[in-house]
Amino acid sequence: MSEISQHSTPRRAAKSGGMPSLRALLTLLAVLLLAAVPFIAPSMQLLINLALAKGIAVLGVTVLLRAGQVSFGHALFFGISAYAGAFLMASLPGADLILVLVAGVLGAALSGLLVGLFVVRYRGIFFGMLNLAFSMIFWSILEKFYHVTGGADGIRLPRPTVLGMVLERSGFEAVIFYLSIALMVLLGWLTLRWFVSPVGQIFQSLKTNETRLEYLGLSPKRVLLSGYLLSAVLCGVGGSLMAMTQGVVTPEYVWWVRSAEMVFIAVLGGAGSVRGAFIGALIYEIVRVYASAFAGDIWQMLLGGFLLVIILFAPKGIMGIADGLIHRGGKRRATTAEEAR
């Protein structure tokens, strides 16, 4: 898939023969399996749809992780996108699904630009906490401006039309489900391509040497802003899909726990891994739902313990374990680009 891996050391290249195609095959199988969920396990459809929406948002957090930055406030763009869709539906009843999605993404992109212009001046803990601060400011606005935002109750998001057609609930859920899968594939592929492109590689080099970036004639702030915008847009797509799936948007969309959850899932799946974002989201949602059903109030503890085990014994997350199995027997070290997958 990526040329970069093919240009690793001859020793590495020799041992990587056939591996990308195996990975691609497994990905294809996973996508087909997901597409079959409405037929083979219809009760899981909603759960999987929520996981896919979250996965796309986590992909946004993953992009920033590739530059060594952690945002604890990216639910802001998730929420802004969701509310933009809800406001659109309130002012334009019967608006099309695509319009809701576009409005949400535009809202996320615009807010990403405004917030990004400020936060790209900071790194590390300051970057993370400033993002959190912005998300909490927006959360308090949503809570306090009850007459506009509906306060803690939020706003209902009526079912949008689909290409001008008014669909029944089941039909609409199917459309949203397959749209989520299509967007997962498209945005996942685009993000992978972006990671190995010159602009994506420059973005990732922020992690190791900003001084050299400056001495290549580039502005590290501007480079970070480009990736920040991409991450905001991805969170926006996730938020819009989540809002249309649930039919209601509440301040909980931007609550700090939602942001932390995104980071949690990104680390769980494999920090910086595109596939890991979706696998992490699927596992997280499944564990969350079933653990809360069967383990009552201790499901958070179970998830916390699970993450602890991952960090201690598999710091590259679930994708790291999967890669280890694929490479079993080999001692090859993955390149930066390969880790992205």
Binding site: I4, L190, S197, Q201, I202, G217
Partner: peptide, 19 residues
């Protein structure tokens, strides 16, 4: 290659750095 990309202002997000 990153240095060359910076020099040339390469911005195509779908082009592979190695190509």
């Amino acid at each position: 290659l990153i240095s060359a990309a910076a020099r040339e202002g390469l911005r195509n997000p779908l082009q592979n750095l190695h190509n």
